[in-house]
Design a protein around this nucleic acid. Sequence first.
RNA 1: GGAGGAGUGGCCGAGCGGUCGAAGGCGCUUGACUCGAAAUCAAGUGAGGGACUUUGUUCCUCCGUGGGUUCAAAUCCCACCUCCUCCGCCA
Length: 427
Amino acid sequence: MLDIRWVRDNPDAVRQMLVNRKATFPVDELIGFDERRRRLLAEVEELKARRNQESKRIGRAQIDGEDVEALKEAVRRISSRIKDLDQEISDVEVAQRDLMMSIPNMPHESVPIGDDEEANVEIRRWGTVPSFSFEPKPHWELGEKLGILDFERGVKLAESRFTVLLGLGARLERALINFMLDLHTGEHGFKEVIPPFLVNTRTMTGTGQLPKFGEDLYRCVADDLWLIPTAEVPLTNLHAEEILEEKDLPFYYTAYTACFRREAGAHGRDVRGFLRQHQFDKVEMVKICHPQKSYEELESMTACAEKVLQLLEVPYRVVCLSTGDMGFGATKTYDIEVWLPSQHKYREISSCSNCEDFQARRMNTRYRPESGGKPRFVHTLNGSGIAIGRCLIAILENFQNEDGSVSIPDVLIPYLRGVTRIGTPQS
RNA sequence: GGAGGAGUGGCCGAGCGGUCGAAGGCGCUUGACUCGAAAUCAAGUGAGGGACUUUGUUCCUCCGUGGGUUCAAAUCCCACCUCCUCCGCCA
């Protein structure tokens, strides 16, 4: 959520942002609501001041034994008018807030302006793309042949885009989770969290999934709870409605959770394989920090995600998303993309974003400056650290051998109790 | 799920329908005392929004949440939420 006072003073900047993001939003309507709200507020507050004064007068007059009926009647009329105005204000506030909840965040000035992923800017590459002496197979072929990915039974148990992991596939998934959590807690200073996988509407609204993107979420209607699409939601909301001490900033949280996404707009995209699932595992990183530190925190958090791939020795690149490709709440986003030999291109495996105070406003998460003064909004960041399923894909494809077996990256071998290879070599 | 009890400021805890944004205590901040600390004493110490002669004064709102009664609600009524105790069920 943006600051309405800032929007009021900078409507043209907001309009330009909407063009850059290829979004539409009724800026004038919003400003109209705000003007009306403030006008009504001034009127009702004056009436309330009068009512409070007159009521006290009635109390005193009664003690003195005066006749107060006429006074009462006058105040009754004021109260009735106040009630009408309060209702009107509440209606305007609801309407205004609904609109405010649907404006995307202002991108940072360093973000490339463009319509879509074509305008994204590559920042750096790491590792060498493997060259195979044979035609590398896609992960779904490798996984099925090795008996570690079962797509048919996933569909049987649930529906399409659900997959069963078996044997060393499940073990590898779990090894990746443990490896990443150990890295972030042991080397990067994150506190490990196990949050609820279902959250309420308020929490979903705090990070920006609601009200706009409900179609992408699974919902438990009977209990009015939603399955989390990412651990960003519960982790960022840990401090919702709190005033933190400046000296306690920053907070670093990491969590493994399953993530649930309806993929409503993705029909026909990545239909084969494990890349795009309704349920997938992810280790997430969240930072809650001082406003002046959020951009350096974005750089260091991206480095934390990169470290995972460096230790696994999987080639990747980092891109800075353009205004048209960036998420709703972000001011700046780095995507990390891993090399997938079967597709001969880089595919997203992590997304690290600074949201500045956009989510903090929605959640009402503030800190008290040490120098004194009013509480101020914190900045929040989130990043995949990293997507487990896609990481498993990257390992299967990049570490495949000609005989269809897959070698295990050195760093994971202890996590697999010494297993160095999935599938026995045939030659 | 059934039966009871409770929700007040950072914490504990008072609060006859009007002078209560809320006693008292703890904690915290500042000052005095001290070589320094402790103790003691004094003062201050919630949040949000608005106005103005914009660092000070003033107004409005907030006592779990939302309604209602009333000239006036922390205080009365209703619903909901959360927590605690006991019983039942359960990984």
